[in-house]
Design a binder for these strands. Structure first.
Lengths: 346, 346
DNA sequence: CTGTTAGCGCATTCAA
DNA sequence: TTGAATGCGCTAACAG
C-alpha cells in the first residue's frame, strides 16, 4: 500500500454538501456557513466540518452557489488579441488581482472583430459575471446595449479618449496624446520629414488614434507626414521590417519613421541594422508600448511606455470596489498616463 | 428619438426564461427547446419565441442551465505564466478552438508556484467544468487527486516526458529530446566547449528537462558542458543578456552557449552584438521556442520551434472529443514534435 | 449557535 | 408538438 492510497478513493461524481454534512453530523447549512466563514460557529463544529470536507476532498459547486445567491465569482475579460505580449500582460494584471479576491477570469478574444465581440460579450454575460472588463471604448450598439442592460459592472480599459458615453468606469490612457507626445519629441529632436509604418489600423482603433494624434501634432509643429505604409494583418516584427523596406523604397528621403507599435518598430530597427542605416542619424525610429525587447536592443528604442500590467490590475480593482456600500464613488475615468522613453533611435 | 432608442429599455435585472415565454405566449419549456434547438417545434412557435427573445435582449443564464443539466460549458485552463508570448499563444489556440464549440475558458495563472496551482485547480473545479487543460505533467499529489477525483476530462499539455502516470490525455513534446537535438546539432557544427545560461529552472521544469537532455546528449557525443550561469527569476531578454555577460566573465573560452529559451537567447544575441562578439565564429548561440523575434534578427537565431498555438488547439480538441459516443479512443498521448531551426547564430 | 424551509433559473422527465 | 412537474446543489431567510 503506497502513500497515495491513503487519500480517499476517487468518487464517480463530485460530492455534495449533503455528504459532507452527513459525515460531520451536522446540517447542510452549517457546512455551508463553515466553508464560507459566515456567522458564529462553535469551534468544535467548525473543526468537525473542516475535517470532513478535507477528508472527502470536497470541492463546492459554485454554479449552484452563484445561482442561489447573486452573481457568480466570475469576471468576463474581453481582449482583442493574444498575438503579442501586450494583452497577455493586461490579463496577468487582471487575473492576479482577481485571484486575491477569490474571483476568476473567463476570457474572450475578439481578434479585433466587432461581430465576434458581440457574440463573446453575450456568452460572457450568460455566466452572470460579477463584472466585465473589456478592452477599448468603441463598441457596436448591440454590445453597448448588452453591457448596459444586465446591471453588470463594466470597466473599459486601455483607452480613454472618445466621445462615446462610458459604459462604466474607464482605466487607460489617451492614445491621441501619446501619439502627439511622440510627434512633439521627434520634432524637438530636429526631425521634419516623417513616414509612418502601420498594421491594420482599421481594426486596431487605438493605433489609429495614436496616428491621428501624431499627425495633428506634427502639423501644429511644422513637421511633415510625407508617406505612409500600411501592412495588412496584425502587427509583427516581420511586418514592421517589410513595411519600412517598402516605405523607404517609395520615399527614401525621410528623417524619421513612426511605427504603429513596438513590434513593428523593432522590425524597422532590424531593417536598418541589416541595411547599414544608422539610427538616428540616417533615420530615426519610434514606436509605442515600451516593450522590454525594445529597451534591450543595442540601441534603446525610442517609444512610449504604456502601463499594461497596471491597467489590468486597476481594471480588476474597479470591478472589486464597485460601490459596495456608501462612501464616495471612485472616479469614472482613471488616466494611468504614459511615459515617453527617449531611447537612442531618435 | 434616435436610432439607439429603438432598442428595449434597460431592465434592472437580467431577464428570465419565464419573461420570454410570457411575451411569446408559450411555456418555459418551449422557449428552452427553441433556444437550444431541441426536439420538434412548430415553425410559427419557433419564430414567435425567437422574436420575443430578440426583442427583450434575453441572455440565458448558463449557471442555471449548467446546474439543471450536467456540466458547464466552461473549460479550466491552467498556465504557469503570461510573462512571455509562449503561453499567450497556447491560450489563443485553446480559446479559438473552444469558441467554435461554444465553450469558454476560465483561466488560472500559477506563476510556476505549486501551492498556487493547487488553489487554482480547486477553484476551477468548483465550476464543474467540461474539462481542465493544464500545462505540464508534474503536479503535487493534491492536484493529482483533485483532477483524478472529479470525473473531469483532463488534458496535460506542453510536456510528454516523465514517469508520472498521466491524468488524462497529453499533448506536447519531449523537452528532453529537444535539448538532445540541439546538442547533436551544435556538436555536428563543430562546437565542443559549451556553456549554459538559464533562468530559474527549479520552477520551470520543462527548461530543466531540456538542459538535462542537452547535457546527456553532449556527454554522449564528446562535447563538454564546462560552465553554467543561472539568473534568478523568470526568463527575459535582459536576464539572458546579463547571464551571458556573467558566464563569459567567468569562462571566456567557450565555443557555444545554450540558453533556457529564446527570450534568454535573444538577450545573449544582443550582448554579443553590443560587444563585437561575432556569431557563430566567436561564439555560437542557441535557444528554444522558435519565437518570431528570433527569426527576424539580422542573423536568424538557432533554435527549436515548439508548435504552441497548435498545442493549444489540440488540447482544446481533446476536451471536445472526450469519448462522446463509441468509436476508437484517441491516443492517450499526442506528440506534436518540434523542429530544429538551424539559423545563423550557431 | 444550528436546523428547516424555500427558492435561484433552468433542463428534463412525463403526460397530454 | 407542447405543457406541467420535479430537482440540479446551494444560499438565505426564518425559527428555534
Amino acid at each position: 500500500m503506497t502513500i497515495r492510497d491513503e487519500t480517499v478513493p476517487t468518487p464517480a461524481s463530485p460530492l455534495r454538501l449533503a455528504e459532507v454534512a452527513a459525515r460531520a453530523g451536522v446540517s447542510e447549512s452549517t457546512v455551508s456557513r463553515v466553508l464560507r466563514n459566515i456567522g458564529p460557529i462553535a469551534e468544535t463544529t467548525r473543526a468537525a466540518v473542516l475535517k470532513a470536507a478535507e477528508e472527502l476532498g470536497y470541492v463546492p459547486n459554485r454554479l449552484a452557489g452563484a445561482l442561489a445567491s447573486t452573481g457568480s465569482a466570475l469576471v468576463g475579460v474581453v481582449v482583442p488579441s493574444l498575438d503579442n505580449i501586450v494583452f497577455a500582460e493586461v490579463l496577468r494584471g487582471v487575473t492576479e488581482k482577481l485571484e486575491e479576491a477569490g474571483l476568476q477570469a473567463v476570457i474572450g478574444v475578439t481578434g479585433y472583430d466587432l461581430a465576434r465581440e458581440e457574440r463573446i460579450v453575450s456568452a460572457l454575460l450568460a455566466w452572470r459575471p460579477r463584472g466585465i472588463v473589456i478592452a477599448g471604448i468603441d463598441h457596436t450598439p448591440r454590445v453597448r446595449d448588452l453591457l448596459a442592460a444586465n446591471g453588470t459592472a463594466v470597466v473599459e480599459m486601455m483607452d480613454i479618449d472618445g466621445s462615446e458615453p462610458a459604459l462604466g468606469r474607464r482605466v487607460g490612457l489617451s492614445h491621441g496624446a501619446a501619439g502627439a507626445a511622440m510627434a512633439a519629441h521627434l520634432v524637438a529632436r530636429g526631425h521634419r520629414r516623417f513616414g509612418y509604418v502601420g498594421h491594420d489600423i482599421s481594426r486596431d482603433i487605438r493605433a489609429r488614434k495614436r496616428l491621428d494624434g501624431f499627425a495633428a501634432e506634427l502639423a501644429r509643429r511644422g513637421g511633415d507626414l510625407v508617406a505612409r505604409q500600411m501592412v495588412p494583418g496584425p502587427s509583427s516584427v516581420s511586418a514592421g521590417r517589410a513595411g519600412l523596406a517598402a516605405l523607404l523604397a517609395a520615399q527614401p528621403d525621410l528623417d524619421a519613421v513612426y511605427f504603429s507599435n513596438d513590434d513593428m518598430a523593432v522590425g524597422g530597427y532590424f531593417h536598418c541594422e541589416a541595411n547599414g542605416i544608422r539610427m538616428p542619424d540616417d533615420l530615426a525610429i519610434a514606436g509605442f508600448n515600451g516593450l522590454d525587447i525594445g529597451q534591450e536592443l543595442p540601441r534603446r528604442l525610442t517609444t512610449v511606455r504604456s502601463p499594461r500590467y497596471r491597467i489590468g490590475q486597476l481594471a480588476a480593482e474597479q470591478i472589486l470596489t464597485r460601490q459596495d456600500a456608501a462612501g464616495p464613488a471612485s472616479p469614472a475615468t482613471i488616466d494611468v498616463g504614459f511615459e515617453l522613453i527617449a531611447g537612442e533611435t531618435a
